[in-house]
Amino acid sequence: MDPDRALVEAAAAGSREAFDDLVRRHQVAIVALTRALTSGAADAEDLAQEAFVRAWKSLRSFRGDSSFRTWLHRIAINVVRTAQTRHGRWTRMFTAAEPDADPPSPEEPLDAALARRQVIERALASLPEELRVAVALRDMQGLDYREIAAVLDVPIGTVESRIFRARRRLKPLLAPLLQTGPSVTGQER
């Protein structure tokens, strides 16, 4: 049973209050997803807003075959894909280079959490799009394999394969973090 069903029905009937509740419920997850898929790009929140706008426009056509969360994730992925196709590879290269645009001076202490996030975002950016999406949905969004298969409209076996290959590619890129462990400060061990 979709926990959002009642709100979705009310929003589809025109209730903006119900839709506002849906936005509040899912905004963090969708922003996290767009950030993961755009490697922390500055317009990640803007893309997330676009996803909700599209969801509002398409609510009447939402048949409920999947959960609202699944449907919303699918919309967000399409929004990111459209934006990246529109901007082209040049923009993605430029966006990926932004964290290096202003490197900290040796005298300033490096924010460990920020550095850790940048390592992860750069590692994700190096993946092919289909692998990046799959591993982000699983490990960062917490979706199960069945739900990811519904979002991407691919078999569960394909989802498993993509996630496996993504993690294998990420391992050497995340090696510094693997040595320090998943802690934020990196001072454990």
Binding site: D20, V23, R24, Q27, V28, V31, A32, R35, A36, A44, E45, A48, Q49, F52, V53, W56, A113, R117, I120, V135, A136, R138, D139, M140, G142, F164, R167, R168, L170, K171, L174, L177, L178, P182, S183, V184
Partner: peptide
């Protein structure tokens, strides 16, 4: 595989701007 998954899962949730809903 589990180690990589754990690192990705350790990314904290983003701070959504208070005006997010208003902008939508």
């Amino acid at each position: 595989q589990d180690a990589v998954a754990a690192i990705l899962a350790s990314v904290p949730p983003p701070r959504v701007t208070p005006a997010f809903l208003a902008r939508v």
